[in-house]
């Protein structure tokens, strides 16, 4: 029996000026599972992600990645996170350098680094951008380069914070294809419920720092009363 990719138990978390962003959140994600995380703005999605990665220190509760407890402040290459705004993630003067940044931090030999970078670029379809400056790319290209930077480290769990933000239809299509085929377990926070319905095998609803629902996408997303109660709308495919 494999340990779950992610086990969050009774997590409470917050900031100095907002002490209770998350309260008693429990969540399990299994290897290779794609889970959608939905909820209104300010419900605590990004905070949950930062706590899972060990960047925020929880006030209570535990987080475990593949059976290993997360200690705040440590580096966990088994988890990758895609930030909401790719400009915050991309900082190197070339696409290739940016994708390599995390891989080099894993302490791999240069040949292995180059191979990983090439593979990640291939998987995300950005090989032709390798020598471009990230700041000059289009929104969709930046998003795929940021994803390449995450998957090059070969995390087994990936947290996507609104991966579809700033994307046009074609770029979104590419993103969906990528999410459907990438083997890592994923937790996808998004306001695009069609995307969640299309990609995820399970959906959890976060509102005011609490998980209020957990189930199959058709059950949750078509439940008009539940969706309404938490400031969400039933996506058109379930209407």
């Amino acid at each position: 029996m494999h340990p779950p990719a992610l086990a969050v138990i009774n997590l409470a978390c917050g900031y100095a000026n907002r002490p209770t962003v998350l309260q008693g959140v429990s969540l399990v994600v299994h290897p290779a599972e794609r889970v959608g995380l939905i909820g209104p703005n300010g419900s605590g999605k990004t905070t949950l992600f930062l706590a899972i990665c060990g960047i925020l220190k929880p006030q209570a509760g535990t987080v475990a990645l593949f059976g290993q407890p997360v200690v705040a402040g440590q580096f966990y290459p088994s988890v990758g996170m895609l930030f909401q705004n790719p400009d915050e993630q991309l900082f190197c003067p070339s696409v290739r350098d940016d994708i390599a940044f995390g891989v080099v931090n894993l302490g791999l030999a240069p040949a292995e680094v180059a191979a990983r970078v090439a593979q990640a670029m291939e998987q995300t379809g950005v090989s032709h951008l390798a020598d471009r400056v990230p700041h000059h790319l289009s929104g969709g290209e930046k998003r795929m380069v940021a994803i390449a930077g995450v998957i090059a480290m070969q995390p087994r769990l990936i947290l996507y914070d609104e991966p579809d933000a700033y994307l046009d239809r074609r770029a979104r299509r590419r993103l969906v294809q990528f999410l459907l085929t990438h083997p890592a377990a994923s937790l996808i926070a998004s306001h695009d419920l069609e995307l969640i319905a299309e990609v995820c095998q399970r959906v959890v609803v976060l509102d005011e720092g609490r998980l209020v629902a957990d189930g199959l996408p058709p059950d949750i997303l078509s439940n008009a009363a539940l969706m309404e109660r938490h400031g969400l709308e039933v996506p058109s495919i379930y209407r």
Partner: peptide, 12 residues
């Protein structure tokens, strides 16, 4: 946020 992103990618 940028420092968070760097730390997640193993910045020492």
């Amino acid at each position: 946020r940028r420092q968070h992103a760097l730390r997640l990618r193993g910045m020492q």
